[in-house]
Computed example of a mutant assay.
Amino acid sequence: MGNLVKSELFKLGKNRSFWTLIYIIFAWAIVYPILIFFVNGTASVTVKELFLDTALWGNNYVIKLAPCILAGFFISSEYSIGTIKSITSSGNSRIRIYFSKLMVFSIGAIIISLILPIVMTGVGAILFDFNEMPDLAYFFRTIGLISIYAAAFSSIMALVSIIFTDSGKTIGFLLIFFLSFHGILFALSLKISFFEIILNYSVFKLLFDIPKFNLENSELLTLVLVPILTYVVFGLLGSFVFQKKEIK
C-alpha cells in the first residue's frame, strides 16, 4: 500500500492539470486583494471581511468545481493511456489500488481547496495592515472543515471518474452535477419531506455552514461527521465499482 501511495504522489506531483489549477487559484488569491488595495485604499476592507465575504464564499466553488478537472486528468485519463491496466496486472489488489489513488487525489483536492482562503488572507493581512484579523481559532476551524469537505467531494468525483473512464465525459458530467445538484435537491425538498432530510444532512448544504461563527456542539459534530461518513460511503462504493469494472 505504501508503494502504491508513493507512486500516486509522484504522479500527482507531475500532473500538469494539478499545477495549472494551483497557479490559477494562487494568482487569483494574490491579484484580487491587490486590486482592492489599489482601487479603494488601505481602509476599504478589513482582513476579516476579506476572509469571510470573498475567500470562504468564493472557495465554495473551488471546492466543488476545481478538483473535477483534476479527477478527469488524474483518474479517468489513466484508462485511455493504459496505466490502470498496468497497475491492476502488477499483483496489487484492486481495493488497495483504488484507495491509494483516492487518498492521493483527496490530498490534491485539499491542497487546491486551501489555497484561496490561506493565500488571500495572508496577502490581505499584509496589504491592509492586519486590520481586524479573523480569530485564530475560527480561522483554523474553517481550514479544518474545508479540508474534510474537499475530501468528501473528492470521493464522489473519484467514483464518477472510474464509472466514465474518459476525462472529457468525467469533467463535463462532474461540472454539471456539482453546479446543479444542490438546486435540484432543494427543489425536491420543497415537495417531498424525505428529500428535505437528505438536503439538510448532505455535504452540498452543510458546506455553506462552514463560515458560521457561533456553532453549537451538535452543529459542529454534524459538520464534521457528515463529510467523514460521505468519504467512507463513496470510497467503499468506488472500490466496489472498481473491483467489478472491466479493464481493457
Rank of each mutant, 00 (worst) to 15 (best):
N131V: 03
T121H: 04
L127H: 12
F153Y: 06
L159R: 13
S167G: 06
I112P: 11
F164S: 11
I143P: 00
I110V: 15
G108K: 08
I163C: 02
G172Y: 00
L145Q: 13
I115Q: 11
G168I: 11
F139Y: 14
M103L: 15
I171T: 09
G172I: 04
A158Q: 02
M157S: 03
T142V: 10
N131F: 10
M157F: 00
L159V: 13
P117G: 00
I111S: 12
G124F: 14
I163A: 12
L127S: 07
M133F: 15
A151M: 13
V123H: 11
V160H: 07
G124Q: 09
L127T: 08
P117I: 08
S155Q: 01
V160L: 04
A151F: 14
I148S: 05
G144N: 06
V119F: 01
F153C: 01
L116R: 03
I156K: 13
T165M: 14
Y149R: 01
G168N: 10
I111Y: 15
S106E: 05
A150R: 06
G172L: 04
G124V: 13
G108I: 10
T170Y: 06
V123T: 09
G144M: 02
S161R: 12
S167L: 00
I163W: 08
P134Y: 09
A152Q: 06
I146C: 03
S106R: 00
A150G: 10
A125E: 06
R141E: 08
I171P: 02
A109E: 10
A109D: 05
Y138F: 09
Y149N: 02
Y138L: 12
F153V: 02
V119T: 11
A151W: 09
I143L: 07
S155H: 10
G144T: 10
S167Y: 01
I143F: 04
